[in-house]
């Protein structure tokens, strides 16, 4: 039996109210979601994204059809929350990352963020630069402004527009599939 079938079976048991199977499923999904988001989001928001997605899986578990594979359902929920998170980041461009998060292992997280890199490469250079500085590396708006020569307002606008475009790109790709 594949892992997907096993997760589907555990989710079906969860839909019937079996706590043990459901706990095991959530613990395994927590690890899978962490891996999903670590390649797609800045390090500072990964935990929140995993948490949001676990809550969404719990609240919408009745929409899983046990006659269908579980993985596409899971990926669709995770992708929806990913787009949601990108939109939320674009609405709060001035929010700084936790300093500790920005320093602790941020380099490896950024290096492994292949999907995020691909998305960033679709943006204009000015947008890419400020998103990397502020959202991934933890610089303040003022520091990013000083490093790039963009005014503070332009840094905010570029972050907002860049993240909004990333969300739109993910959404368009999801609809095309």
């Amino acid at each position: 039996m594949s892992g997907d079938d096993e997760w589907g079976r555990l989710m079906a048991a969860g839909q019937d109210g079996h706590g043990g199977a459901y706990r095991r499923l959530l613990e395994e999904l927590r690890r899978w979601l962490f891996g999903f988001f670590v390649r797609r989001l800045p390090p500072g928001v990964i935990d929140d994204a995993v948490q949001d997605t676990l809550i969404a899986i719990h609240e919408k578990r009745h929409t899983y059809d046990r006659d269908r594979p579980f993985k596409p359902w899971l990926v669709a929920v995770a992708r929806y929350k990913w787009i949601d998170r990108l939109r939320s980041l674009s609405r709060t461009p001035t929010e700084l990352l936790d300093e500790e998060v920005a320093v602790e292992g941020h380099e490896s997280a950024v290096m492994s963020a292949t999907v995020l890199d691909q998305l960033l490469s679709e943006l204009k250079p000015a947008q890419q630069t400020v998103i990397r500085l502020v959202k991934l590396e933890g610089y303040s708006i003022e520091e990013a402004s000083a490093r790039t020569g963009q005014s503070s307002s332009l840094v905010k606008v570029n972050i907002h527009r860049g993240l909004a475009r990333m969300a739109a790109l993910v959404e368009r790709h999801a609809h095309a599939e």
């Binding site: 969860g14 839909q15 019937d16 109210g17 706590g19 459901y22 706990r23 959530l26 613990e27 927590r30 690890r31 962490f34 935990d47 995993v50 948490q51 676990l54 809550i55 719990h58 578990r61 009745h62 929409t63 899983y64 059809d65 046990r66």
Partner: peptide, 19 residues
């Protein structure tokens, strides 16, 4: 990663659902 407390809370909240 989110703490075990969240998972315990969700498991504690578990009820059978109508699909």
């Amino acid at each position: 990663m989110p703490s075990d407390a969240l998972i315990e809370k969700l498991v504690g909240d578990l009820r059978p659902v109508r699909r």
